[in-house]
Nucleic acid binder design. Structure first.
Lengths: 143, 143
DNA sequence: TTCTTCTTTGGAATAATTCTAATGTGTTGA
DNA sequence: TCAACACATTAGAATTATTCCAAAGAAGAA
C-alpha cells in the first residue's frame, strides 16, 4: 500500500538515516525537525523561529525539545552555531567553512562563501591551546 | 591643603575631562567607573565583573547604572562591545582596530593587535548597506 | 540659590535558555 | 512479540542577563 505522502516519506527516510549516522535516535520530534532543517538550501534559524516553523507545519514540539535538539544536532556536526548577537543564538544548516554578513538593523544573517574571504596572520594561540575555529562577522547597516 | 590622595585625584581629573569631551556629565558614578576603566592598560570586562570590581573598590553603584554607563561609554566611543558568547556581553577598553582570541573553556578574551591578522576579499554588502565593522574571533580551547 | 534637565536607583519586568521530575518512546534480546 | 531498559520529551518552574520604571537625587545654567 502506497504512502499517503511520497515526498514526505522520502524526507523522513533521509532524515532518519541522517540521524542514525549521527548516532541519534530517530524520534518523532527529531525526524520532523531534521526534515525541516535539511530539506534543501541552507538557512539560518533561532530556537524561536524553528519552534514557530514546526508549529506552523503542524508538529507539536516543546521549546525544551527544540533547544535540546539544536544542541544535539550541533554536537553531532549537523548544525553550526553562529554567535553574532548577545541576545539570541543563531544556528546554521551550513556547517562548511564560510562566514557571515550580519545585518544589525534586523538581525538577519547572510552567508559569505568560504573561499571569498582570506584571513592571513592568525597568531599561534597561547601554550596548551589550539585553534578551534576562526569566525569572521561582517557587520553591516542600512545607510 | 593637600589632597588626601594625589593619585586618586589625578585619576578623577583625567576621568572628568574624558567624560566632558565625550559629552557626558561627570557624575560621581561615571567618574568612578571611568577611573577604574581607563586607569592604565586595556582590559576586558562584563557588567557583572565591573560591578564586582566597583563594589570591591568601595563604590556603591547599582547594576542598572553599570549597564547604563557601559552603553553610554560604548556610544561615546570610549568602549567597544565584543560579541563572542551568546550568554554575556563583553566590553573592551581598547577601541582601536584589533581582534580577539576567545578561550572557550573559561570565557576569557585575549587581544590580538590590529596589524596581526590580514583580512582580504570582504565582499560588497547588499545594496543599501554599508560595512560597519569586520570582527574576527579566533576561538581556542585547551588541548 | 533655584530651576530644569539629566542620572541614579531598587525592584519589578522581560527574554532567552536551562533545569527538573514525571511521563512517554525507541531499541534490544529472549 | 513483548518486556525491560535506556534514552527522550514535556510542562512548567528556575535561572541568568538585561532592560524598564517611576521616584528621588545631583549637575549645570541663570
Amino acid at each position: 500500500m502506497a504512502s499517503k505522502n511520497v515526498s514526505g516519506a522520502k524526507t523522513s527516510e533521509a532524515a532518519i538515516s541522517r540521524l542514525r549516522e549521527a548516532g541519534l535516535r530517530p524520534t518523532r520530534q527529531r525526524v520532523a525537525l531534521a526534515g525541516m532543517l535539511f530539506r534543501g538550501g541552507h538557512h539560518h534559524l533561532t530556537a524561536e523561529s524553528l519552534h514557530a516553523e514546526a508549529t506552523k507545519a503542524g508538529h507539536r514540539i516543546s521549546l525544551a525539545t527544540i533547544y535540546n535538539t539544536l544542541h544535539q544536532f550541533t554536537g553531532a556536526g549537523l548544525l553550526s552555531q553562529v554567535t553574532v548577537d548577545a541576545q539570541r543564538s543563531y544556528f546554521d544548516t551550513n556547517t562548511g567553512d564560510h562566514q557571515h554578513f550580519y545585518v544589525e538593523d534586523d538581525g538577519e544573517l547572510i552567508d559569505i562563501p568560504g573561499e571569498t574571504i582570506a584571513i592571513a596572520g592568525v597568531p599561534t594561540p597561547p601554550k596548551g591551546m589550539a585553534v578551534e575555529r576562526v569566525d569572521v562577522v561582517v557587520r553591516i547597516k542600512r545607510v
